[in-house]
Simulated assay, not measured.
Amino acid sequence: MDLRKSGAIAPDRWLACELHTHTLHSDGRHTLYELALGAAAQELDWIALTDHNTTSGLLGKEEVERAAGISILNGLEWTTFYGHMLLLGLREGDYADWRMLGPGDLAQGLHEAKALGALAGLAHPYRVGSPMCTGCYWEYEIADWHKIDFIEVWSGTFPSVRTSNQRAFALWTEVLNRGYRVAATCGRDWHDSASGAAEREPVAVTYIAKENPAKAIAQGAVAVSMGPLLTMRAAGDGSAAGIGEVLTLAGGSRNVEVSVRLDFERRASVWTLPEQTLEIRLVGNAGIIQSVAMPAGSSAAAVLIDASAMTWLRAELHGMLNGCRTMIAFTNAIYFETE
């Protein structure tokens, strides 16, 4: 089944983003221009600048965008003693203050972030904390997950093998199972673009299906990969839904066709995979629903599943990367409702 020809998925709509970066204006070791050039060399379309508690690094953003040929999203890493949040899509010149907020004031911090038009997401929630990284470990209690837009489930390079990220990924799964539609993203936490300082390990990127990263994340139209771009679509009862969308089914038949596609062309110059049979797992609130073998050279598959007890579904790509078997890519969820 050629999904490109069928029109079910249009891979050229997906834009590659790095959503967690720093410059000399906080603890980074490059300028915004150097960061942008490094991002362009990585075939990225967008970066979000998320310096710690400052937006001063965005000065001259438009000139840098023109010179490097990429787009820059206004952001900030809201950095406190009790946790870090990525705020994405801040209005020009806005700043989210953190200094008067204590461990019980997360709701106030979220209220102020949303008043600035920003999305709020947990940054590396299970990274080791003080004294090695003050506030990196998330300690805030989240009273209302509806206020959280996303979780950075993969942080750093070769993120899938890090125990802290595996815990974050499990947290996201738990939140989905509790009925909250929270997106999952990745972030390199990029501090240095000097020659030789990058790409020693696989790097994951966040792909978005919209022109604007903040809008895509808000809608859950997001996929994450260290290699080929993995996308998914579900169809049943005469309707269809893509990643981040809702598939509404009638009360009768709950048979759903799930189509998955691997795009091996996107950013192919900056990642490598050994020739192998890859595995795509369809995972939902009931666990692993189905496993699909993708022999070398295969790029698309379609399977029929029973969605009678499902509330959400994602796709995961597993295989050999950098000498070990690991998760290489995953999609955000498609959600299911009954009329």
Rank of each mutant, 00 (worst) to 15 (best):
M1R: 06
R4C: 00
S6R: 09
A8H: 00
I9H: 03
R13I: 01
L15Y: 09
C17W: 02
L19H: 05
H25C: 15
G28K: 10
T31M: 12
Y33P: 00
L37G: 02
E43C: 12
E43H: 14
E43R: 15
L44V: 08
W46N: 03
I47S: 11
L49F: 15
T50G: 06
T50V: 05
D51E: 11
L59F: 11
L59R: 15
R66T: 12
A67C: 09
G69H: 09
I70R: 12
G75N: 07
G75M: 06
E77S: 11
E77N: 10
Y82S: 11
M85F: 10
L86H: 08
L87D: 01
R91T: 12
D94P: 00
Y95L: 14
A96G: 08
R99A: 12
M100W: 10
M100Y: 09
M100P: 02
A107I: 03
E112C: 02
A113Q: 06
L119V: 06
Y126W: 15
M132V: 14
C133D: 12
T134I: 15
C136F: 10
Y137S: 03
I148V: 10
I151R: 07
W154E: 04
W154G: 03
T157W: 11
T157A: 14
F158K: 07
T163K: 13
S164A: 13
R167P: 00
N177C: 13
N177V: 07
N177H: 11
N177Q: 14
R178A: 07
R181K: 14
G187H: 10
D189Y: 10
A197F: 02
P213T: 04
K215N: 04
A218E: 12
G220F: 09
G220N: 08
A221E: 13
S225G: 05
M226H: 06
G227L: 04
L229Y: 05
A234W: 05
G238E: 05
A240Q: 12
G242M: 06
I243K: 03
E245T: 11
L247T: 02
V258N: 04
L262Q: 03
S269V: 01
P274W: 05
L278M: 14
E279W: 02
E279Q: 09
L282G: 13
G284Q: 00
G284P: 02
G284S: 01
N285R: 01
A286Y: 00
G287A: 00
I288A: 03
S291I: 07
V292L: 04
V292I: 12
P295D: 05
S298T: 04
L304V: 12
D306N: 14
A309T: 13
A309Q: 13
M310N: 00
M310R: 01
T311Y: 01
T311E: 05
E316V: 02
M320G: 06
L321A: 02
N322T: 07
R325A: 07
I328N: 05
A329P: 09
N332Y: 01
A333W: 00
I334K: 01
T338N: 03
T338D: 01
